Amino acid sequence: MRRTPFAPGAARELLRSNADFLRHFDGPDSITTREVPNPVTGPCITIVTGVNRKQNAELSKIRLFVSVWVPKAEILVDRDEPILTDPEELSWDIADEAARIFDATRGMGRGSNAFVFRGVTWKAEWDAGPTTMVDKDRGDDNPLYRSVIEVVMKAGSAPA
């Protein structure tokens, strides 16, 4: 019986494989399927599953929530390479760029930009967002600026 590979992992590897996109982060580990790091010293991304809809034996449509987290401006400007962009705008810009990377994989036919992860062909479709919010769970003096996009990942059959 075929198992559906871990869709958040496929999304993570797609973003990590884009060298230009990685310029926003301290390294590829800043894009994760785990929890938000503590402390947050620069932009990071978390990827979680929202809904997994099984279409048939060979196709699943998995909705992911991709969250970009950016710390307050005082932390960004104190970095070795200061980031001067407003943190809320920065989270929006990174989320928008991630959405466009996912959307570039939409076509699954010949010559498409679909990608393979763990032996399965994937494509993604940017479905919603960015949506912005401010997370103050770590205290009013330590806000995290968050932008969320929704992406539908489609897992098809193994490549020929």
Results as ranks from 00 to 15, higher is better:
110 R>N: 13
84 L>G: 00
138 R>L: 07
44 C>M: 15
31 I>K: 13
22 L>D: 00
76 L>Y: 00
120 V>P: 02
137 D>K: 09
44 C>E: 03
156 G>R: 10
121 T>Y: 07
58 E>C: 08
66 V>R: 05
143 P>R: 05
52 N>W: 08
43 P>E: 03
27 G>M: 10
133 M>T: 10
27 G>P: 04
83 I>Q: 00
95 A>G: 04
54 K>N: 07
145 Y>P: 09
33 T>R: 06
109 G>P: 02
4 T>G: 06
68 V>Q: 01
67 S>Y: 02
6 F>Y: 15
143 P>N: 10
6 F>R: 02
15 L>K: 08
60 S>V: 14
160 A>P: 15
69 W>N: 00
140 D>L: 14
44 C>V: 14
122 W>C: 00
79 R>W: 11
2 R>I: 14
159 P>H: 11
85 T>W: 05
62 I>L: 04
6 F>W: 15
107 G>S: 13
2 R>Q: 14
99 A>V: 02
94 I>F: 02
59 L>G: 00
56 N>G: 13
29 D>N: 09
76 L>W: 07
15 L>F: 08
12 R>N: 05
77 V>S: 06
129 G>H: 09
41 T>Y: 07
103 D>E: 15
145 Y>Q: 12
101 I>V: 06
1 M>V: 11
109 G>M: 04
155 A>E: 12
27 G>T: 09
136 K>R: 15
84 L>Y: 10
99 A>H: 05
44 C>Q: 12
23 R>C: 02
20 D>A: 13
65 F>V: 03
109 G>A: 10
68 V>A: 04
135 D>P: 06
49 T>W: 05
